[in-house]
Each structure stands twice: as structure tokens, then as C-alpha cells.
């Protein structure tokens, strides 16, 4: 079972939307004009190219989740929307991170091995790593790498699917 890494005020929504120009703008515009907060957002076409799947992490402090879901569902291009129960879903996020190596290559490589991260690119004094995991585990790796000096970092925002054990 996966325990949600998010704080209780964060909820994960998944929406199937029509894969058409402007749909992301409609979704984002709705969040902004109704005062809803998005914590993270990931969007890409599904196996059926007519549709895209959006995974939102929403901050529902101040706005009932029910209202966010219903307003999103009213958008004509939103085909389906539901909340993922954190107890019955799997969440992953990918991080690319470039760090300073300096004189601590050995210590850095120990962390890389420890987390089974990938080295994607190597410079004289920098390493670019890739790792995908539960978002809280990414936070953890990020904190462990911070003392080395983070040059650049990009996270994808979380994606999620229902788990199969329920």
C-alpha cells in the first residue's frame, strides 16, 4: 500500500480531457478565476490520441474539493474526472537534477548508489542525475543533495494511477 506523501490538504485528481488546442488553458484558467490552487500538474496524451490525461495535485485549503471537481467537470472538454484515493493509488514523479561534484565525488556517488539514481550526464565538476519515485522520496533526495550545491533542478509534477491491490 502506498501512503500519500502529500499533506492532508493536498488531493490528487486525474482528468481525461480532449486532446485539443486550448484545453490546458481552459483548465488552468478555471483554477485561476475560481481561486483554486494547483500544487502540481502533469499532462500528456493517453494511449488513445484523442484524449490526454491530466494529474493534478490541488491545494484545497479554502476550497472544498467537491467544488473543484464539479467546476472542472463542467468544462466541455473534460471527459472524466475523479479523485484518486491515496490509499489505493500509486504516485510517481521524475526529477532531473544537476549538482556540483567538487571534492566530494565519493560521497555523492554513495548517495547515487543508495537511491539507485541514474547519472545522465557528467561534466568536469558537475553531475546530472535522474530519479523517479514517490514525491516525498524526491524531496528527501533533493535535501541530501543540497549540501553539494544544486545547479539546476526540474521535477515533472506527479503522475498517478489506481493501484491494483484494492
Amino acid at each position: 500500500m502506498n501512503v500519500s506523501s502529500a499533506s492532508p490538504r493536498w488531493h490528487t485528481l486525474v482528468a481525461t480531457v480532449e486532446n485539443k488546442p486550448g484545453v490546458l488553458a481552459r483548465v488552468a484558467g478555471l483554477f485561476s478565476r475560481r481561486g483554486f490552487n494547483i500544487h502540481s500538474l502533469a499532462v500528456a496524451p493517453t494511449d488513445d490520441e484523442r484524449f490526454s490525461r491530466i494529474t493534478f495535485t490541488v491545494d484545497i485549503e479554502g476550497t472544498p474539493l467537491d467544488q473543484v471537481v464539479k467546476q472542472l467537470d463542467k468544462l466541455i472538454n473534460v471527459v472524466d474526472i475523479s479523485e484518486l484515493n491515496p490509499a489505493h493509488s500509486v504516485e510517481r514523479e521524475l526529477m532531473l537534477i544537476t549538482v556540483e561534484v567538487g571534492e566530494y565525488r565519493k560521497e555523492l556517488m554513495e548517495i547515487v548508489d543508495d537511491y539507485r539514481a541514474y547519472v545522465l550526464s557528467e561534466g568536469d565538476d558537475r553531475l546530472m542525475l535522474s530519479w523517479s519515485a514517490r514525491p516525498a522520496r524526491l524531496d528527501e533526495l533533493e535535501e541530501r543533495l543540497r549540501p553539494f550545491g544544486i545547479v539546476e533542478l526540474q521535477r515533472t509534477g506527479r503522475v498517478a494511477l489506481p493501484s491494483l491491490d484494492n
Binding site: 488546442p21 486550448g22 488553458a25 481552459r26 484558467g29 478565476r33 466541455i76
Partner: peptide, 14 residues
């Protein structure tokens, strides 16, 4: 026009 009117229409089409 579709961008401007997105928030004030039930739906719009280009």
C-alpha cells in the same frame, strides 16, 4: 477571441 472569452462563455470554438 477564444482566449478572451473563455471565462465568460459556457464554451467556445475556433
Amino acid at each position: 477571441t477564444t482566449g478572451i472569452t473563455m471565462a465568460v462563455t459556457k464554451h467556445n470554438f475556433l
